[in-house]
């Protein structure tokens, strides 16, 4: 555990001076603050931020995450020469990346909301947004780490990270839409919900949606959606699935790290 702690601290120290991370933090502050400046009310700001979160958080976490893993290669090789457990080192590496990114997002989006008293009536919605964004960061960093550990070629690795971003953020929903139009005559509510669970970006979206757009989701005539989105249970399931999307890729990446010949 000491190893993990040391590596995490080293990672955070390294990231603290990173210009890209500072820019990431600043971008959220500027976007959230300008949403308030341009006359946004609480729910509108949450929804506009949701769009940013769904696009930007996976993009930065995946691409920046992959780049960072490639950049830390020599550092890792150096540490592996010491008598440390690989799993501890890996955990430190992962957290040293995921924690600063999450903090940049949560603070960057949260501080303007706090300053403009955006919590108040929309407290749960804002909280859902922050939790969803944080979960998405952890998940995407794990996926990025896994990709970077599998692929030695940096260019190829970053290309794969970009492809993963495009797939999860845009193409996947397009496929779901196509599926729904093609099989619209069949009872597809359950498959649709299952499809939402198998994509972390959709999970994050649904988490926020259940708080902001419950009135619309409950307007669906089937009882399934009402049961899913009208109760806390639905949100808990989504949260659990998002947690699985963090643990799963993390485990894959960790196994890769253990087996890898550096």
């Amino acid at each position: 555990m000491t190893t993990t702690r040391l590596v995490v601290v080293a990672g955070i120290r390294d990231m603290a001076g990173n210009r890209w991370l500072a820019a990431y933090f600043a971008a959220f502050v500027v976007v959230a603050q300008s949403l308030f400046w341009f006359g946004g009310t609480g729910p509108q700001v949450v929804l506009s931020l949701l769009n940013v979160v769904l696009m930007v958080v996976p993009l930065v976490s995946l691409v920046f995450g992959a780049m960072h893993v490639y950049a830390s290669r020599e550092f890792v090789e150096l540490l592996l020469a010491q008598p440390v457990r690989r799993r501890d080192l890996f955990t430190g590496l992962y957290l040293g990346l995921a924690l600063p990114l999450t903090a940049a997002f949560v603070l960057g989006a949260g501080i303007p909301v706090l300053m403009n008293r955006g919590f108040g009536a929309n407290g749960i919605a804002v909280l859902a947004l922050l939790v969803a964004g944080a979960g998405l960061t952890f998940s995407c960093v794990a996926i990025a780490t896994w990709i970077a550990l599998r692929t030695d070629d940096r260019l190829k690795g970053i290309g794969m990270a970009l492809a993963a971003w495009l797939a999860t953020s845009l193409l996947y929903d397009g496929a779901v839409l196509a599926f729904a139009s093609a099989f619209g005559d069949w009872p597809i509510e359950k498959p649709m919900l299952a499809m939402m669970v198998t994509n972390p970006v959709d999970l994050a979206r649904v988490l926020v949606l259940a708080q902001v757009d419950a009135s619309a989701l409950m307007g669906y005539t089937g009882a399934l959606f009402e049961r899913t989105f009208g109760s806390a249970l639905g949100s808990l399931v989504a949260l659990g699935a998002l947690a699985l999307w963090c643990v799963g890729p993390w485990f894959l990446a960790a196994r890769r790290f253990d087996a890898r010949d550096f």
């Binding site: 949701l50 779901v176 509510e189």
Partner: peptide, 8 residues
């Protein structure tokens, strides 16, 4: 059922 894609 495509309602789940709201705000995507």
């Amino acid at each position: 059922p495509t309602l789940v894609l709201l705000r995507s």
